[in-house]
Nucleic acid binder design. Sequence first.
DNA 1: TTGTACGCGTTATCAT
DNA 2: ATGATAACGCGTACAA
Lengths: 336, 336
Amino acid sequence: MGSQVTLAEVAERAGVSLATASRVVNGSERVVGAGLRERVLAAAQELGYTANTFAQAIARGRSDVVGLVVPDIQDPYFSVIAAAAMAAVEPTGEMMLGTTLRRQEQELRYVSTMRARRARALIMVGSRTTDNAHTRQVAQAIADFVAGGGRAVVIGQDKLGTDTVLPQNRAGAKDLAVALVDQGHKTFGVLAGPNTLLTARDRVDGFVEGLAKRGKRAGVVVHSDFTRDGGYQAMSEVLDRRTRPGCVFAVNDVMAIGAMAAVRDRGLSLPGDMAVAGFDDIPTLRDVAPSLTTVRLPLEDMGRMAGSMAMEEQAGERRRVIRVKGEVILRDSTRL
Amino acid sequence: MGSQVTLAEVAERAGVSLATASRVVNGSERVVGAGLRERVLAAAQELGYTANTFAQAIARGRSDVVGLVVPDIQDPYFSVIAAAAMAAVEPTGEMMLGTTLRRQEQELRYVSTMRARRARALIMVGSRTTDNAHTRQVAQAIADFVAGGGRAVVIGQDKLGTDTVLPQNRAGAKDLAVALVDQGHKTFGVLAGPNTLLTARDRVDGFVEGLAKRGKRAGVVVHSDFTRDGGYQAMSEVLDRRTRPGCVFAVNDVMAIGAMAAVRDRGLSLPGDMAVAGFDDIPTLRDVAPSLTTVRLPLEDMGRMAGSMAMEEQAGERRRVIRVKGEVILRDSTRL
DNA sequence: TTGTACGCGTTATCAT
DNA sequence: ATGATAACGCGTACAA
């Protein structure tokens, strides 16, 4: 690196000891005389001094870095949460970002990176999978991180033994199914996302359960990626069937958006020929037409809660699991 | 912090010197005997050792942190760039994220934070403003950062004396105007964004210039925020006028999306009653209907370029300004 | 090949 | 109130 000004240089220039300089630049107020204080400040100013965070962290034995690991920062679901968490962390901390691109090994890598960084906290958002071996590994890595003095907060399933923000996926999807039947829909399909993703499974299960409660069932269940393109593809498969359902539930909104595109690309009308519902209520929905029926999750709140839990001073006596419920919002995409 | 295992403990357990332990855990290969090597690795494994990045950074005099500062991570324009930059940085570095929420003082704060972190590089994306005093301050802060041995890359205007990825806003908007006139549009309006934002101004200027080249002019120019809601509001103002233009240019896509919503909310048809064009070609556009005419910027390339410039080893003999041109893409939203 | 010892920039303890 | 000085955890010349 180039020539960064050190505190020692500032102290020398101000004609004071290193300790005194340190005190005025950072330490508790009022411990140092006004005269010296001035001189130190002036010297720091003139030299363009900036404290070396690394040195501080190592000397203090702690840092204010919060690690945020998300599958994909481009996905609105995650970017909303990230922005909210950021806002909560920003006042006193700094945020390190890791994106896994949905690759499991990346998840592990980031946890250990945050451990190496002696991060103050780690926020991990994204669904767990059916890969129990991997889940165990992540849980272990996080346990190590926590043992080292870090906080960990997860948004998703409660499988990692951490403070958790837990969306009620199953209940929300069940409510949605009931509402759709009550609205008059008769036949259903499900764009189920990856079979290995717990969030997706919970939503499928909840939806099927809700249908059953009203004496209905899902005629078609198609698996695909948890993305816009996954939704498009899955819906295309549904449309290729001889018998099409009248209403399709996509397990998240981005998939639903892709599904709508597939419907439109076939020249079919929406919701006339095909009704579509999603899950999450991402902000993007404001601008999709017809407006999309979905299950609203308070994404901003979830991000903010995770962020503030991460920044809490106290290590917390007992771990917390905050259940967040989804609210069914009926819009035009399922209007009969 | 809790009890993190140190290299010294590993060394002791392995029965070797600190230096040897350091060599095997990090340093150049093959310098250490196979036997000791094994023992050190085993000890590290058993103890669950993780190198303290802070200590490494301070001892080495450099870090692999890259700071990314964006106005808003939820805006697709920035999240695409962020994701691409992330991909370029990830192999060897780590990314620290800062969002300014379009507040200027935050910009300065993050630059100095990255300086304190002795970050390897800083990527700043977002338009400069007409506030020259602030621009000077940021330029100075960045100069200090660079003097300290950091790299700086900017995506936006070339006003900070750094390596820069520079979109050809003016030329792109000009091309768009010409294309729209040639398509048969007669009367125009501009949703101009903030009057203080250089990117917005450049695009307005270019558009007006293009119109002039074809003997046309912009009948209405309305300023607003550079956001979806800004576009909605500005378009609402346009629609309130006695004489409405037939075609409106929103200086970015998110504004255009807001503008389309405003048109729709009045029960007007698009592009029948009002044609709309945007700028950027964000991925979100895939799912807006009617498809939006825009000026395509290679956002991913831009992010990737910035990321790899940030990770370059050599300090670069001369600063580079990479001009990126926009390509007019005519779609349904301006079809006559 | 391996170990010794010093330096990196701060903070914090203990005298003064 | 102020100043020495010992940590903090690691890398690395230099010596062996």
